[in-house]
Design a protein around this nucleic acid. Structure first.
Length: 177
DNA sequence: CTTTGGATCGTCT
DNA sequence: GACGATCCAAAGG
């Protein structure tokens, strides 16, 4: 959270994330490794990109050691550079926030898809996806809540976000207003 | 602003 | 064969 995501010309500050653990019924890792989730069980600091609802890509940062299967879903980003490219890819939405205020939206805006599944976040080159620490201190401390869009593990308060940021996704966890 | 239903297909059962 | 770690447009208030 609050790190800079860099993919080609696109840069954005991560303003909302969710954690997923291997013993967590909401996690893709819950039933062990499979073809789809294999990069979740790979080395930390790499990307786990998955396809869902027949049309959307979502991106995670793998966090645990090899074989562990934990990751952090990137749910929203606040654009810092490359908004023009993002708008192009997103079909020029009426409101600026719709560029990147959701896990599938930010992937589309940043051009993240299955080709980037498993890439090293410390890597360089044309296929590089970078996570940078700007050494920034948030204006307000992060807040947490339950997670969005899941049907199991709904009680776990594993969603973190920067309160007040306009790019935090519109989906609402149960129990929060 | 909120609610509702459709889109669309890979994955695992 | 059922179901998504989602998004969008349309309709109603």
């Amino acid at each position: 959270l609050d790190k800079l995501l860099v993919v080609g010309p696109c840069r954005g500050r991560i303003v909302e994330v969710e954690a997923y653990e291997p013993d967590d019924p909401a996690s893709h890792a819950y039933r062990g490794p499979s073809r789809r989730n294999r990069s979740m069980f790979g080395p930390p600091g790499h990307l786990y990109v998955y396809f869902t609802y027949g049309m959307h890509w979502c991106a995670n940062v793998v966090c645990g050691p090899v074989g562990h299967g934990s990751a952090v879903l990137l749910r929203a980003v606040s654009p810092v550079a490359g908004a023009q490219v993002m708008a192009e890819r997103r079909g020029h939405p009426a409101r600026a926030v719709d560029l990147t205020n959701g896990p599938a939206k930010l992937c589309q805006a940043f051009g993240i898809d299955g080709q980037l599944d498993g890439v090293d976040l410390a890597g360089r080159g044309p296929r590089a996806v970078e996570l940078r620490d700007e050494g920034r201190t948030p204006f307000e401390p992060a807040r947490r809540s339950t997670r969005i869009g899941i049907s199991a593990g709904t009680e776990k308060p594993w969603r973190w976000y920067l309160p007040g940021d306009p790019y935090v996704s519109p989906g609402r966890p149960s129990g929060e207003r």
